[in-house]
Design a protein around this nucleic acid. Structure first.
Lengths: 109, 109
DNA sequence: TATAAATTTCGAAACACTTCGAATATCAGA
DNA sequence: TCTGATATTCGAAGTGTTTCGAAATTTATA
């Protein structure tokens, strides 16, 4: 067990739970992709999308999209920031690094 | 959305759901770690642990450990193989590679 | 200030997950 | 073949998740 810190299990479980729903995975994919494809749309040059555009192609109610984004935010995967009428969302890269480390530790040296 | 294949969302959600429980994360950590720390204990030289040893420090019923391992297996994260009285478990490295790619795509280039 | 747009909160229904102990199954060795 | 060790399946209770539409909130603009 020593390659990992056993105390971190709950933290990782929370993050993976946030990605355990296909709609949330799609939202995450989209946010992660727009860092490259879209031009910066955030208020401070940070790249993000808002709840409305994220829910557009998902075929679920807006209230459900809002709920899913809140879950992603709670886990730390996604940052949200109100700007005017819109809530802008973006992937938090520090959590991505954490997860990359998590799975790198599972690979043989 | 084009850095990712939208159709893969369900597959990823299934894998992350398998890791959305802290006991399953602990089991995964332990299986991932023993590839280095423990000497090979699998029947064919493959490194693994059995249900009993995995559940030892978890403080939950054996039937629950069995259930969690089945979930990990269903998602493809863990291979299981009956050998004698014991069921040997090991991490499937191809899924680890898949997940490393998933999160690498979320990092800016 | 009044209205419209974007989002969140709320309550409810349906469904899925977690965990246990008891019962059952599988297998090695006496 | 009988026994003990290991593991799985089953049924049940409690809890958590998903989704919706309606209502409320927040903010820009007429």
């Amino acid at each position: 067990m020593s390659r990992y810190r056993n105390d971190d299990a709950q933290r990782y479980a929370d993050i993976f739970k946030a990605l355990s729903n296909p709609y949330r995975v799609k939202i995450f994919m989209r946010l992660a992709s727009c860092c490259i494809e879209a031009s910066p749309c955030g208020s401070d040059g940070q790249i993000c999308e808002c709840v409305g555009t994220l829910g557009k192609d998902l075929g679920i109610a807006g209230s459900t999209v809002s709920h899913h984004i809140k879950e992603l935010n709670r886990s730390g995967l996604v940052k949200i920031k109100r700007h005017g009428q819109r809530t802008e969302c973006s992937v938090d890269l520090s959590v991505i690094d954490l997860l990359l480390e998590f799975f790198k530790l599972a690979e043989p040296v």
